[in-house]
Design a protein around this nucleic acid. Sequence first.
DNA 1: AAAAATGGTGCAATCGGTTGCAAGGCATTT
DNA 2: AAATGCCTTGCAACCGATTGCACCATTTTT
Lengths: 332, 332
Amino acid sequence: MGVTLKEVAALAGVSRSAVSRTFTPGASVSAKTRAKVEKAAKELGYSPNALASSLTTGRTKLIGLISNNFHNPIFLEVFDQFTRALQERGLRPLIVNLTDETEPANSVRMLRQYSVDAVIVASSTLPPSFAKAFHDAGVPVVHTFGRSATSPEVHVVGIDNVECGRMAARELVSRGYASVGYLGGPIDATSARDRQRGFTEEMANHPHVPVSHSFAGAYSFEAGRAEMLRLLAGDPAQAYFCGDDILSIGALSALADHGLKPGSDIGIIGLNDMEMSRWEYINLTTIHQPIKQIITASVDLVEEMLKTPDRYPEARIFPCRVIERGTLRPRP
Amino acid sequence: MGVTLKEVAALAGVSRSAVSRTFTPGASVSAKTRAKVEKAAKELGYSPNALASSLTTGRTKLIGLISNNFHNPIFLEVFDQFTRALQERGLRPLIVNLTDETEPANSVRMLRQYSVDAVIVASSTLPPSFAKAFHDAGVPVVHTFGRSATSPEVHVVGIDNVECGRMAARELVSRGYASVGYLGGPIDATSARDRQRGFTEEMANHPHVPVSHSFAGAYSFEAGRAEMLRLLAGDPAQAYFCGDDILSIGALSALADHGLKPGSDIGIIGLNDMEMSRWEYINLTTIHQPIKQIITASVDLVEEMLKTPDRYPEARIFPCRVIERGTLRPRP
DNA sequence: AAAAATGGTGCAATCGGTTGCAAGGCATTT
DNA sequence: AAATGCCTTGCAACCGATTGCACCATTTTT
């Protein structure tokens, strides 16, 4: 089916090496042979077989992109950015959907079979052991949206979740809410626990304000809604820090059920600042996570690992900031 | 870095062929050698290099998954389903993000370089020429969410957009709306035009009901909102068929700006029935598109093409149905 | 004009597998 | 006991590329 090097070489009347070199940037070919080869290649519609060349070069330009987060709308933006950033640099994303998978072994084997040059673990809910498993198998890895503290062995890119928790707490306190709650993602996700920790730490400076905690079953609309409905059935706090915009939006829908107006009746602050949060009738006050910078940095790091395989592991942490919209009451 | 066939053969004390055959289902190996090889393989942590074997077998199990639709939340579901369906069958999705790309040539070359076994074009806005380009390059292709009429050369899986247009028109008429409008996606998308055609055809049976048409710039929230704001500034119809749920949701947000209640003040019916449309405070009446069936059928078709490369092209069209929620007024 | 440096080219080995073919081993048949 | 057939195995060629090395033709230096 495909045209091969050999056929081009035959048509151009040169050796296979010459053809190979024509398509290898930086190789030594004279203008004359290059012209002959390019003419023949165009005529035949030749393009080099990347997989065959990977055999000798040891590079496939394939990057494993693994995630388990296909229900949070923020991941539309994440996938869009990742796929574009990778292909802009001539790298190809090989997607692995890890939903319902708890064991790294399978994906490690699978991605090694395809000789990926590196792996990006894009998830805040996969345990650090996943990234670690790739590292141990000798595959360069960066954990995007990962936790820096517990994985000093792999590259991590993301935000300081503890600091975000503090930031949310400060914001709620500054609005004068008399009781606050944390409504986090799944309790086994490091991101959910770190955000809680920061929130609790900061609230400890305000002992007169009671703090409650709860965790939704997933980072999803339904989980956020269900958890907020449960809270509303009891004795809810005056304001909540939801661990993710999608939880916030679920919570907002629960408030609507009870005829409560976000902001004035119950305050909500989210985290992520995804596109949807800007929608007029959601209009969520939230902590902006710089997705674009995080993804660019992740891909940068991938490229650098390809150049320097034994690169010393590093955490790239980006600051977040509060985006004020309509779901918190004004400062007194 | 990786363990090779040769090393396993050496350790097991057999030829390379024996090792290869042990890992090739259906090859002839005695129980004894198989045992020796498997022991050695486990000891070394060997797993075969899929790319190297593709050289001789001509199969990579790589499937190009190309789309330009990273702003419509329905694609979260689409990507989730596609990646899972593919990997369940031992196939690997290689994603190509075609946003802002108008020329098929690049992606064709790129995917041929990686010797993908087949390509899935998952988009209702990419012109048929994309799928066609892969077909012409000798790459098996299925166009999911494609238009069956104009691409008899490639496999198409999806819905009958014209019929959906009719269905929407019938629904609006049955609710007794005295004027109706079509608010479609980008005018160069076949899906937008086909839905319009069906809508117009059906409305022709009701000449007393005036019909208007407009097209949003994209299948996106912002585009739907902007277009509806424009309509509201003039003399809006009593009900609209929006060519996609995401347009509907944008339109709903525009209604909210004007203090209009969907259903009673202005009717909206969408198309897709994405997860979000079920959210309580969206609660969109819409036409359900059977995403799961469409994707399963697409992957089935891919598998069948791998077995029978010269398969006669075929269209698999799935019926849709109206899901009644809260954005149309009740039947009189 | 001779010697040295430079740049271009082809040969052949190699990457990690697969597979057609022929030979060997063993059990079954006559 | 010889002949037949079936399995199993290893050899060696091949898949489509890359690359170290040696060789050759130029050009530059002296």
